[in-house]
Design a protein around this nucleic acid. Structure first.
Lengths: 148, 148
DNA sequence: AAATATACTACTAATTTAGTGGGAATTAGA
DNA sequence: TCTAATTCCCACTAAATTAGTAGTATATTT
């Protein structure tokens, strides 16, 4: 399961993506309110996302956060890895958080590892192709379908 | 990520599957040794798996554990759910551990939910079709390929 | 100077994970 | 019947992770 931190990060970045072309920063408190994220927690998350290069910020009275990349370039897999850790089910098949299974004598002979590798590939295929832009367009479609 | 408990459960059940036709129970200590699982922890895990109906046990000096279902009928998804919890990335798309996202006004209009649902389907497609028998056959293949 | 943002450090409380300890109950065999 | 070897089961613990919160410093606009 994804930690709340990751879910909040996705929601916050999506909110920033929605106003990407406004060229004005969005305040933490504004995001926190519309997305129903605890204010102080969101502050910490956005700070981390800034350190990781996802967003930029402006201090002071007209301050706030803004995306530093185009929403099309920010993939769900990136956000998950930056805030929540591995996508893989086991460390021995994780690309970015790899660890050996000490109890496994030969990693290449582990059939469980093979299956779990398949699962990772299947998940990544979806998560690494879904951008913030995708999420926004998808939401618009969903709303249109309801109105019909 | 899967908890160690789940990984241990899979390993232990696979060990039991390998001797399924022997009609003799396997001792905890024996499984613990060959699979390098902490003895006492494995004891607790097997006890739980018995309560859930995966295995049966025999007490006393010739005692041990044995599978109560055919290895072909025990799927990875079953073991994960019994010992580790949800396969889904978010509670709002979990079949067996469903919870609403309080911050989501309309679940059906959440685009993140749709994507995460896709991921669950993709993962489940693999995990619910992989049985203990599959794991054992896969391992044999891997070993054969190395020897060639 | 005042008001209002973010920056940053340092906590905390609750939950989950990964076990361990020890005694009771059961069984087979001498 | 006694003993050794096994599972059963309850209670506990230690460490890590998660989900935050508090408070002060710093920057920016008016």
């Amino acid at each position: 399961m994804l930690p709340k931190k990751t879910k909040y990060a996705i929601k916050a970045l999506t909110a920033l993506a929605k106003v990407y072309y406004d060229k004005k920063p969005l305040r933490i408190s504004q995001i926190a309110e519309t997305e129903k994220i605890p204010r102080k927690f969101l502050e910490a998350i956005l700070l981390e996302l800034r350190h990781q290069g996802f967003v930029g910020s402006k201090m002071g009275v007209t301050g706030g956060y803004y995306l530093t990349k185009h929403p099309e370039e920010i993939m769900l897999s990136d956000i998950i890895r930056a805030t929540g850790g591995p996508i893989a089910l086991l460390p021995c098949v994780s690309l970015n958080f790899y660890e050996t299974c000490e109890e496994c004598p030969h990693e290449e002979l582990c059939s469980l590892r093979e299956v779990v590798l398949e699962v990772r590939e299947a998940s990544l295929k979806i998560l690494s192709k879904t951008s913030l832009t995708h999420l926004i367009l998808k939401e618009k479609k969903l709303i249109r379908n309801v109105k019909k």
